[in-house]
Amino acid sequence: MKIGVLALQGDFHEHITMLSRIGVETAEVRLPEHLDGLDGLVIPGGESTTIGKLATDFDLLEPLRKFAAEKAIWGTCAGAIFLSKDVHRQQPLLHLMDIVVERNAFGRQIASFEIDLEIPVLKEVAPGGGPYHAVFIRAPLIASISGGAHALASLEDGRIVAAQQGRMLATAFHPELTGDDRFHRYFLHLAAGQS
């Protein structure tokens, strides 16, 4: 199993550290040819406008769409924005998941927060696991879901913060900033084609 992490900008190194810790081979992806031979791809947190611009300039948009048709792909925060079909503003998107995302939905940095979430689907990789500690940084929300996408996690008030569509995952928070590897293991399970 070899997982790529899109390394145009953002906290890709944090994802690589987490994946390496659970024994997965990783590769940094900056150009289309770096996608060859990968079983899955993580799009990290960062600035979605920067990642979108660099992906456009280095001709990654179509190769990423093609990759996602065959392999597992997961976006955290900026990555989730990039995977979405709409963010109600002009910026390059992959339009892969049937989710509409609202950027900076909680406000500016002062409103960034940590909270425990119940994420039932993580029981598939960790049957005895408790709540999931999630870190939200100038975070987006998944404002609406349609088509083949479904919610994986919500805040207490029902607002959606994680979604899945086939082998595509979107999380508004940052599993790579915690010591908890359950979300990464869940993604590996999708990449291995077990779901």
């Binding site: 390394a7 906290d11 960062g46 920067t50 925060c77 870190v135 940084i137 900033l177």
Partner: peptide, 10 residues
């Protein structure tokens, strides 16, 4: 610290 981590590589 997390926001700065999001700025990495930028």
């Amino acid at each position: 610290k997390g926001l700065a981590q999001m700025l990495k590589g930028g």
